[in-house]
Simulated scan of single mutants.
Amino acid sequence: MLKFLLTLSLGVFCVSPLQAGELTPATKSCLSGEKQGHCERWVKDYKTAMEQAQKGDHGAQVTVAFCLSTGCHGAVTIDRVASCSWHLVIANSGAATVLDSSNLRNTCRPMTPAEKDQARALSSDLVKKIYKRSMITTDQM
């Protein structure tokens, strides 16, 4: 039984970066009510930002990282690993600011070592995809 659990847990961490890069967190369905319009606007803005972020737009990357860490008022599923990976992409963009470095530390430092490894793998794949180069090693987290 122990071997099975160990094998199963290793399988979780051995997802290839390409597969991990293709798993984008889903937007949520907005509940009807007075805040439905606000939520639907955030869903639309997030989807637009994700498209632009994958093309290298710094502001869109910041929006995506923010939404993945906060949920953007309930419009996006919170995913700390994905948020951290986008912060690492921003750090590798060449356009990072002091605020971006602070956001990277605040988002990534509380994560477990395994989560940090997942974020590094995902961000490495994203940097290759977006900037057509290898990720510069940064260990601000």
Rank of each mutant, 00 (worst) to 15 (best):
L2W: 12
K3G: 09
K3M: 12
K3R: 14
L6E: 10
L8C: 10
S9M: 07
G11V: 02
G11M: 07
V12H: 05
V12D: 02
C14N: 03
V15M: 12
S16D: 10
G21D: 08
E22R: 02
T24K: 11
P25K: 06
A26E: 11
T27R: 02
S29Q: 12
L31H: 03
K35Q: 11
K35D: 10
K35C: 03
Q36W: 01
H38G: 02
K44F: 05
K44P: 01
K47S: 06
T48P: 00
A49S: 13
E51L: 11
Q54M: 12
H58A: 10
H58R: 10
G59M: 12
G59P: 03
V62E: 02
A65R: 14
A65C: 12
F66L: 12
L68G: 03
S69A: 08
H73E: 12
H73V: 07
H73G: 04
H73T: 09
A75V: 00
V76K: 04
V81A: 07
V81H: 07
S83V: 04
L88M: 15
V89K: 05
I90G: 04
N92W: 08
N92Y: 08
S93D: 09
A95C: 02
T97D: 09
T97A: 11
L99R: 14
D100K: 08
S102P: 02
N103G: 09
N103Q: 15
T107V: 13
T112Y: 03
T112C: 03
P113G: 02
A114E: 03
A114W: 02
E115I: 00
Q118E: 05
A119V: 00
A121S: 15
A121I: 00
L122A: 08
S123Y: 12
D125V: 01
K128G: 14
I130V: 15
Y131Q: 14
K132A: 15
T137H: 13
T137P: 04
T138V: 14
D139G: 05
Q140D: 13
M141D: 14
